[in-house]
């Protein structure tokens, strides 16, 4: 294992109590194993909490603060959240190589499984047994999708403007057949401007008005 050789600091590891936290030394094999296991058991989502429990609480690879800072980044960027978090942790522990290995190992198990199921589907998809099976699978998929609409709606609606944005987005995509990248280029600047940071004075004004009888 050439991984652990160029690492002189590894031996005199002081279990410091008050010095600022340094990320623990983690071998690349451990990273691959960790994210491979998550990829292997990533059935059905809910993974963010799971990763936090393993990486923060159990392994101590990063602090809770670092984890939530990573989550905040990943949430406003495009892409799957779990993948983003994994890359961030990989990069945090072992730099670019760590990030690349985290991405590879979390993607590999589901990739192989999904490819296998896909080939089965194209081989046997036309017979009546698999059609019956798939009727149930897609019906549940539809129910899951609907539940995601509810969850996303609950998180995003805090005013009339948000409702208008949801409806406009839906109509542009559904009736206008506009592609997602153009929808975002068109609507995101408007929405960001609407939610722009307001100057503090306004808030103070309101507070003063509210407090003076």
């Amino acid at each position: 294992m050439p991984v652990e050789a160029p690492n002189p600091d590894a031996t005199p590891q002081p279990v410091s109590s008050d010095t600022p936290r340094v990320s623990p030394e983690v071998s690349l094999w451990e990273l691959v194993f960790f994210f491979g296991l998550i990829g292997l058991t990533s059935f059905g989502g809910g993974l963010t909490a799971y990763i936090r429990r393993l990486a923060v609480t159990q392994k101590g690879w990063l602090t809770d603060e670092e984890f939530f800072s990573a989550l905040a980044i990943v949430q406003i960027l495009p892409g799957a959240r779990v993948v983003g978090i994994s890359i961030y942790i990989g990069n945090h522990l072992r730099g670019l190589l760590g990030a690349a290995l985290a991405l590879l190992s979390i993607m590999m198990p589901p990739f192989l499984l999904v490819c296998f199921l896909g080939l089965l589907y194209f081989h046997y998809g036309e017979n009546s047994d698999s059609k019956a099976l798939l009727a149930g699978v897609t019906a549940v998929a539809c129910g899951l999708m609907a539940s995601m609409v509810f969850e996303a709606g609950q998180k995003s609606i805090r005013g009339v403007f948000d409702v208008v944005m949801i409806i406009v987005t839906f109509l542009l995509v559904r009736l206008g057949h506009m592609h997602v990248q153009y929808v975002i280029l068109l609507l995101a600047p408007i929405a960001i401007w609407w939610h722009r940071p307001r100057p503090e004075i306004k808030g103070d004004d309101l507070n003063q008005k509210g407090s003076t009888p």
Binding site: M148, V168, T169, L187, A191
Partner: peptide, 12 residues
């Protein structure tokens, strides 16, 4: 806050 309603519309 700006992106969440757009995502919701797309998921819908």
């Amino acid at each position: 806050r700006a992106m969440m309603p757009i995502s919701t519309g797309l998921i819908l």
